[in-house]
Design a protein around this nucleic acid. Structure first.
Lengths: 234, 234
DNA sequence: GTTGATTGGGCTAGTCTTAGACCATTGATG
DNA sequence: CATCAATGGTCTAAGACTAGCCCAATCAAC
């Protein structure tokens, strides 16, 4: 019975590390940017400053953050994803287990397709359409350094534009579960070009209000990266 | 930034109450059945027995559970959903707020459509197909008392059959967010008949391996109940 | 009846977490 | 170069939570 699973994934410290790591790895706080001040962040995360500081300390020790004191100080993001490499990939897969990997990929496929479908069904307002188009342009104009961050932002913006924060956080969660894996895939121009075409198809379907086409385009896109993963693992 | 939301939804006691309530309201522990023994349940929920007992005490005080000591004792589910009534509905909606209601409905639409689509794509094995057909038959044979519970079980089995426990728990979560609302809708024979046709369409599409048809059938079904909700609210 | 296994009820010592206050450092600004 | 606001660093007392132990009630089996 899946509903009687653990109420908490760990203690407050562990969950906080996980959450901050999610923000960092998804690029929601870009490299060079800093986290909100401790006092404010502690309130937003609903934990005490002591616990937050422990988590920040751990991430600082692990090389994700650079903490500076004084006015204009803060916790600056220093993380840069490791270079794509099959070794990293195999390591990451080994760490999470094949069962969990398959679970995470299935989960991501379901929620991202669901989000795209819902957005296509919702006939978004002009303002929202513009955001979507902007995010797509951002990815297409991105350099190799920014590509993954902006790709993530594009994907997440679809869920966000549905207006459902539950759906947005779920998609963010789904993406973060596979982000280490995706980062291990080399960025070949062929694949980027292919992705650009698929991204365009997704946006076109959403703007045209065609939920089936949207769902299908997202499914193809995600199946494509899953296939790259499998190929790279073999 | 949605990812810097609270790490925890409440203290251990509150989260435990919420979780048990979810199991009860979804009918995963049927009325008359009992929860697992405290010691075992505490381990499964990852909390101390003291905290679990506080939660059980609260639910017992609120009339959801009947706790009996001694061998063959335990915490027996006494909850029965209130009679459908527009008053209850308006109350429940007022309690959660229109924004959250819309969020929850959107969320449910996305994840359930995603689950059905994924299952249709996965060409399930004969054993799994049998489970799905069995669950559908259960709903169709159900009396009014069991209808909601078995309807829930049918919907959740779709997500479970994908093999993704992340997806299964997410669908359970989505359903539980609207379960009080759904319980407030009167069960008219017309609606039940309509639902039966739609359930059949969902199963047919999944068994035929047609993700678009599956997603569309689920979308229509959920839009139908959402429309009933809106009509009943007006 | 008596027994014994199973289950809820309750206590305690120790750890985790919090709220709040105060200290230390930094650097833009006058 | 003195000031001061913003920020990280540290401490303490109180509350929340846990692990582990033992007690009390119940009832099937003998």
């Amino acid at each position: 019975m899946t509903v009687l699973r653990p109420v908490r994934a760990g203690n407050a410290f562990e969950e906080t590390v996980e959450r901050l790591l999610q923000a960092i790895k998804l690029g929601l706080v870009a490299p060079g940017d800093k986290l909100p001040p401790e006092r404010e962040l502690a309130v937003r995360l609903g934990i005490s400053r002591v616990t937050l500081r422990e988590a920040i300390r751990a991430l600082s020790d692990a090389g994700y953050l650079d903490v500076r004191r004084g006015r204009y100080g803060g916790a600056f993001v220093t993380y840069a994803p490791p270079e794509p490499d099959a070794g990293h990939l195999r390591e990451a897969v080994k760490e999470m287990g094949m069962a969990d990997l398959s679970d995470a990929l299935t989960f991501r496929l379901a929620v991202e397709c669901g989000a795209a479908q819902v957005l296509a069904m919702s006939r978004p307002a002009e303002e929202q359409r513009a955001v979507l188009v902007r995010r797509l342009a951002d990815v297409n104009e991105a350099g190799l350094d920014d590509y993954r961050r902006l790709d993530t932002a594009f994907h997440l913006s679809i869920a966000e534009l549905t207006g459902s924060s539950l759906l947005a956080t779920t998609c963010a969660d789904a993406r973060s579960r596979v982000s280490d894996l995706l980062n291990a895939i080399p960025m070949l121009q062929v694949n980027l070009d292919h992705a650009a075409v698929q991204h365009q198809a997704i946006v076109d379907a959403i703007l045209a209000g065609e939920p089936d086409a949207a769902r299908q385009a997202v499914a193809e896109h995600l199946e494509g990266t899953a296939a790259l993963l499998r190929a790279f693992l073999a």
